[in-house]
Design a binder for these strands. Structure first.
Length: 946
RNA sequence: GCCCGAGUGGCGGAAUGGCAGACGCAGCGGACUCAAAAUCCGCCGAUUGAAAGAUCGUGUGGGUUCGAGUCCCACCUCGGGCACCA
């Protein structure tokens, strides 16, 4: 061991005091030792990483969300979750679990590509450098990853299987009767056998090969469609709905996004909408994340209703079919295909102008505009099927083409938007429900069915009125559920509608016009039909090129067109292949997959990273991912990450997982059984008068006023990061204190799921704690175990066991902050005692091991052990030492604590009551009065009521 | 507007309905030292009191309870998500 040199936080006279410098020596030494000994290698039940013995151990799969290997490296905010999972994994190893814990890199995608474009280097080179740098930084924190299982999405050995999974999805269709994905070949069989009708009724054999291909393409789970997509000229690519922010800009780069019809790859995630909602019930996720997913999928139950019109039936979707009697007009989206046919000549100019204005408005403009209703009459009337009334058909941009059928029946008395529209344009508002008196009271008007007096629409349960025809009578019914059911039955019986379910979720736009992503394993034949490459031709590697930079455009140039970098590579885009009918020329797909593809299945590859025959061995999958008993969906045991992936990654990954499950490749229905959202580390950020962030470390504070270079700045709190100029590098903390101190500080700041502000000056508290632990066991002058350790007394022994009991429970529940507090209390007691009795030393080191593993290894070695502390058993409290002979109880009189009594721990209620009444202070407080009531809570309190 | 989540000392935070403020930071006092640092010991919600103590105190207002930071109702503030989704 080298001698600790002077550091800013230590003094030279104690050569073996635990200092930043000593930590800098101990920590890398143990990190090297762990690597050399393969300490964190985790065995599979079989296969190349196999050891059948592990099957006897309970398994635990702990997963962190896949990080981007950013070019700027880590700041102290990044590893918060990683440290949490590491502490938990280390604890679980000490309780006998076989723990799968590793880390990979989501290295494809925009950030990596943009960094490469900035530096002018090929993304493969910058990615490799960034990954190496991040691995180094993560290793320095002492994370106990199995390095053999680490993966990188840009590695052809990995994306070979991403492409293979794409092929599986492409070659599958969704059988909505059986509610499962099936191989496309089985659909061909059904068509060929005539058990499934073709779209136009001809037999399968009568269709040409090209027509057959068209039919199949219409069923595939991955398909090409010409549909409105989000075109982002500033990025030069299309992006998914989930990547567009509420104000119509791109998630990355914050560029405007335009709706454009384009030919793009889509994933039929809508086929899984129901299962994605329903299976949330099987998951141990927070309610808020579940709510966000439900909200995004947006399932609403209602009915489809056909209204007759001069242009043929207009179909609407409504969640309130029970209000059909109140439908007094219809509204179509301006883009609705029937608008032309419905528009009468006198209205043509007005309608055309309205459509032009509406069409020119971007989504941004539509949302920025105030919500004042606009619209125009088409001149046509439709027939309300339930009462035969002729109602006017309008168009208005408050009806969205992208939701439902792009047309609504307007029930102004029961829908706030329709009410506003009717008021705006003087359309009739017939009342069909009798709102309760309380509703009129709240509105400050007398009860009336004259809606001219109503201030707003009435929404909710109330008796129906004016709601009857010859064969349906809702009048008198007073709940929406019954009204809806009756109406749905009537609609179905009369052939003008049926109950149905509608979703906000749209299919997933899956292609990007970029370079740095997985190429599609797809070629097109001379008729333009897509074929997957045979599996043996995978991976289809990204072609090398210097022009990897995508063509970007003026961010506001809505009419620009995407140009994929791969399109420019003529030598690559055409290829001669034999796909079963002789060698032919094919054209490659020149899109790449979106960022999310690689992270849709990475947890599976962690399980079986070296498998060259399958993306995962079924036996290995069943072991790590399989259901844990009846009703359990399977999936990783603990998944920790930020809340920002609530609807992107988590929805896509669940979808892919379900497809793979349906196709028989997996035993687990869900990828992530338990999800834990860690908080963020916040840091103060400062803005000058121009609203520009200034270097947070140059800001001075005087009397609560902040200044930067003499000028006043304002403080705010935000996620630590480069853009707020407030990032603290972990390296600075290691140098001053070591990684163990950083780990403890991050865990002690608060509960893992809460965001908390970083305070560099607070870090020293955990450093002092580690120094005291060290000092209690180690002679600071010689570095040897202290020879003068005190003897163990009964009271200290009890403190130890109470600590063990509490720390174990806290660790189990991931309450690392309170576990640390209990360890500090124990250590403070030892300091008072003058040192750590030998009998306690090992327990202290073992309890510290998950939190501060480097110091724990070092002390474990000094305590005379010659192997790692990693797999030692976590201490178990002796129950006999958890109970005291006597306890002190507070005595409350009328709810106020007036005295404390000491009684035997097992004293019965009568004894406790007698002791309380006999107490001098209690008697003084009672002043001779007799309590009316005495409540004795054993072991807790005595409460007297006078 | 709708749906989540959170409001506790100067700061981060702790408290199965049972002694509010564990633990850490900052601050104050003491020991050690020629001195300082480090270390060790103690104090550290507010008001009041010489002290013992007393009174108040967990965003606000009600309620349930012998007893509420914790449960219920209403409201305020902050954070997050969704947002003309029929």
């Amino acid at each position: 061991m080298s001698t600790a040199s002077e550091s800013p936080t230590s003094e030279p006279q104690h050569a073996f005091r635990y200092s930043g410098a000593l930590a800098q020596e101990i920590e890398p030494r143990w990190q090297d030792w762990w690597d050399a000994h393969g300490t964190f290698h985790t065995a599979n039940p079989s296969g190349p990483l196999g050891d059948p013995a592990v099957v006897d151990q309970p398994k635990l799969f702990v997963l962190d969300m896949f990080p981007y290997p950013s070019g700027t490296g880590l700041h102290v905010g990044h590893p918060l979750g990683f440290i949490g999972t590491d502490v938990f994994s280390r604890f679980k190893r000490m309780t006998g679990h076989n723990v799968l814990y590793t880390m990979g890199f989501d290295a494809f995608g925009l950030p990596a590509e943009q960094f490469a474009v900035q530096t002018g280097q090929h993304p493969a080179i910058t990615t490799a450098e960034n990954v190496a740098n991040m691995r180094r930084q993560l290793r320095r924190i002492g994370l106990s990853h199995d390095p053999r299982r680490s993966i990188d999405t840009t590695d052809p050995a990995y994306y070979r299987w991403t492409q293979w999974i794409f092929s599986q999805i492409f070659n599958a269709w969704y059988d909505s009767d059986r509610k499962t994905a099936r191989p496309i070949g089985e659909l061909v069989d059904e068509f060929a056998a005539g058990t499934r009708a073709t779209p136009d009724g001809r037999t399968w054999a009568e269709l040409s090969a090209s027509e057959q291909a068209d039919v199949l393409d219409g069923h595939r789970l991955a398909y090409i469609s010409e549909a409105p997509v989000n075109w982002c000229p500033g990025l030069g690519t299309v992006v998914a709905n989930e990547e567009v922010t509420a104000d119509g800009r791109s998630d990355r780069g914050n560029f405007p996004v335009f709706k454009r019809n384009m030919r793009q790859w889509m994933m039929r995630i809508t086929a899984y909408a129901d299962r994605l909602v329903d299976d949330l019930d099987l998951l141990d996720w927070t309610d808020s994340i579940k709510a966000m997913q439900r909200n995004w999928i947006g399932r609403s139950e209602g009915a489809r209703v056909d209204f007759g019109s001069p242009a043929g039936p207009i179909t609407v979707f409504t969640t309130r079919p029970d209000t059909l009697f109140g439908a007094s007009f219809m509204v179509l989206a301006p883009e609705h295909p029937l608008v032309d046919a419905l528009t009468v000549p006198e209205q043509a100019a007005t309608v055309a102008e309205y459509r032009r204005v509406a069409g020119a408005k971007s989504d941004v403009a539509r949302q920025v505009d105030d919500k004042t209703k606009t619209g125009v009459f088409t001149g046509s009337y439709a027939t309300n099927p339930i009462n035969g009334e002729q109602i006017p058909v309008w168009i208005a941009d408050y009806v969205l083409m992208g939701y439902g059928t792009g047309a609504i029946m307007a029930v102004p008395c029961g829908d706030e938007r329709d009410f506003e529209f009717a008021r705006q344009f003087g359309l009739p508002i017939p009342a069909i429900q009798q709102p309760p008196a309380s509703w009129f009271d709240a509105a400050g008007i007398e009860p009336t069915l004259d809606t001219a007096a109503w201030p707003e629409a009435f929404v909710g349960d109330a008796p129906y009125v004016n709601s009857a025809n010859d064969s349906l009578d809702l009048n008198g019914i007073s709940d929406v559920t019954t009204g809806t059911r009756r109406t749905n039955d009537w609609l179905e019986a009369h052939g003008c509608g049926e109950a149905t379910v509608n979703y906000k979720l749209r299919d997933w736009l899956f292609s990007r016009q970029r370079y740095w992503g997985e190429p599609f394993p797809i070629v097109y034949d001379e008729t333009g039909h897509a074929h997957t490459l045979p599996d043996e031709l995978l991976p289809l590697e990204l072609p090398p090129t210097d022009s990897f930079s995508p063509r970007t455009f003026d961010p506001d140039d809505a009419m620009s067109n995407p140009e994929s970098p791969l399109d420019r590579l003529d030598w690559w885009t055409t290829v001669e292949l034999d796909l079963g009918d002789g060698p032919k020329r094919y054209r490659r797909d020149t899109n790449v997959m979106p960022q999310w593809a690689g992270s849709c299945w990475y947890e599976l590859r962690y399980c079986d990273p070296t498998n060259e025959n399958a993306f995962i061995d079924p036996e290995v999958e069943a072991y790590w991912m399989g259901p844990q008993g009846e009703g359990h969906p399977g999936g990783v045991d603990l998944y920790v990450g930020g809340v920002e992936h609530a609807v992107l990654h988590l929805l896509y990954a669940r979808f892919w997982h379900k497809v793979l499950y349906d196709l028989g490749h997996l035993s687990s229905k869900e990828p992530y059984h338990r999800l834990f959202n860690q908080g963020y580390i916040l840091a103060a950020a400062f803005k000058d008068e121009r609203e520009i962030y200034v270097d947070a470390f140059g800001v001075e504070e005087h009397d609560g006023q902040f200044t930067y270079q003499g000028k006043p700045v304002t403080r705010e709190w935000g996620k630590m990061g480069k853009s707020l100029k407030n990032a603290v590098a972990p390296d600075d903390i290691y140098e001053a204190y070591g990684a163990d101190t950083l780990r403890l500080y991050e865990m002690a700041m608060g509960p893992l799921d809460a965001s908390r502000p970083w305070e560099t000056r607070d870090v020293v508290g955990m450093y002092r704690f580690l120094q005291r632990v060290w000092r209690n066991l180690i002679d600071e002058d010689t570095g040897a175990l202290r020879a003068d350790l005190p003897a163990l007394d009964d009271a200290t022994d009890r403190v130890l066991h109470r600590t063990i009991d509490g720390v174990r429970a806290d660790m189990e529940a991931m309450r690392f902050n309170t576990a640390i507090a209990k360890l500090i209390e124990l250590n403070n007691a030892l300091t008072k005692l003058g040192g750590c009795p030998r009998e306690i030393g090992e327990h202290v080191v073992l309890m510290l091991a998950p939190l501060a593993p480097h110091m724990a290894e070092e002390l474990w070695r000094l305590l005379g052990h010659d192997d790692t502390v990693t797999y030692e058993s976590f201490p178990v409290a002796d129950p006999a030492k958890l109970v005291d002979d006597t306890i002190e109880l507070p005595v409350q009189i009328n709810g106020k604590v007036r005295s404390r009594i000491t009684v035997a721990a097992d004293a019965d209620a009568a004894t406790v009551e007698a002791a309380a009444l006999a107490d001098g202070k209690v008697q003084a407080s009672l002043a001779g009065a007799t309590p009316k009531k005495v409540v004795v809570v054993p072991g807790r309190t005595v409460s007297l009521v006078v």
